[in-house]
């Protein structure tokens, strides 16, 4: 059992939690993920690690309330326990030697973009962050991100906060303005990552994406998370989750991520259904 040590709502549909898991906290590196399961009937849900505190023994996860498990987790409070929390899984991001990076986060993807920016910043790289949101009311982690970069550019689709527009346009403008990035990290909705990669490709800027496909075990056993990268089949859980964005077949990934949409819509969430969880 793993205790919820702290909880903070980042906006109406995104929650931050610190989970007490000292062994995971001690090992976790940027880019790696965990799998949690709320109770004995729960699914195994992968989430990229947002932060960790090895002294307190906690691992920070940030999640959007999208499915049965994340909605249920969002109702739980500090002091309560979840059944399972396993990690750190996956290969850590390769950030060595980067001098000038642009880290782009889209929506809740900023939760994963942030630790990468933080790590790069700590390693002495010059970091810009572009954080894109649909609207002002869902902006998250602004202070945290501002603290680990030279320039934080917040964009909103509707112009209610920061600059009006998309992260793709912002990135193109920054590149065209002479920013000489040797690495772009893109983390967010799959279409966003796809189009960001299209932006950087003509400039030949190395672009890394962090994928979060459907998986069960997270250790290479189920193969559900397979993605085509440069025409080869890769397992996101053990070969990734970071991949060269210019080689990823995003259309296939989008289709695979929608695989259980009907089932998820029809699944009577146990929260709504009234089945309690202690």
């Amino acid at each position: 059992m793993y205790e919820i040590a702290a909880k903070r709502a980042l906006n109406d549909s995104v929650t931050l939690m610190d989970i007490y898991a000292p062994l995971v906290a001690k090992k976790a590196l940027p880019g790696q993920f965990i799998i949690f399961r709320i109770d004995e009937k729960g699914e195994r849900i992968p989430l990229t690690i947002a932060d960790q505190d090895s002294e307190k023994g906690t691992v920070t996860i940030i999640f959007q309330h999208v499915g049965a498990s994340t909605r249920m987790l969002a109702t739980m409070e500090p002091g309560q326990f979840i059944y399972d929390f396993v990690g750190p899984l996956g290969v850590a991001s390769h950030l060595e030697g980067v001098k000038r990076a642009c880290v782009v986060g889209g929506g809740v993807g900023c939760a994963i973009a942030y630790p990468q920016a933080k790590a790069l910043h700590a390693m002495g790289a010059r970091v810009d962050i572009i954080a894109g949101f649909r609207s002002k009311d869902i902006v998250i982690l602004e202070e945290e991100m501002a603290a680990v970069c030279e320039n934080l550019y917040v964009t909103t689709d509707d112009g209610t906060y920061g600059e009006k527009g998309f992260v793709t346009d912002k990135l193109k403008n920054l590149i065209d303005a002479g920013n000489d990035y040797d690495l772009v990290i893109a983390i967010g909705p799959v279409p966003m990552m796809k189009f960001l990669c299209k932006v950087t490709e003509p400039y030949g800027i190395k672009t890394v994406v962090s994928l979060n496909p459907i998986m069960i075990d997270g250790t290479g056993m189920c193969g559900g998370c397979r993605v085509s990268v440069g025409g080869e089949m890769k397992f996101a859980c053990v070969d990734g989750p970071d991949f060269d964005g210019h080689k990823v077949d995003f259309d296939e990934l989008m289709a695979r991520n929608a695989m259980y949409r009907t089932q998820e819509q029809n699944h009577e969430c146990r929260l709504v259904g009234g089945a309690g969880n202690a």
Binding site: K41, E43, S69, Y260, Q263, A275
Partner: peptide, 9 residues
């Protein structure tokens, strides 16, 4: 089993 959360097609 419908009472479990993991989906199946």
């Amino acid at each position: 089993d419908e009472t479990f959360d993991t989906p199946l097609r």
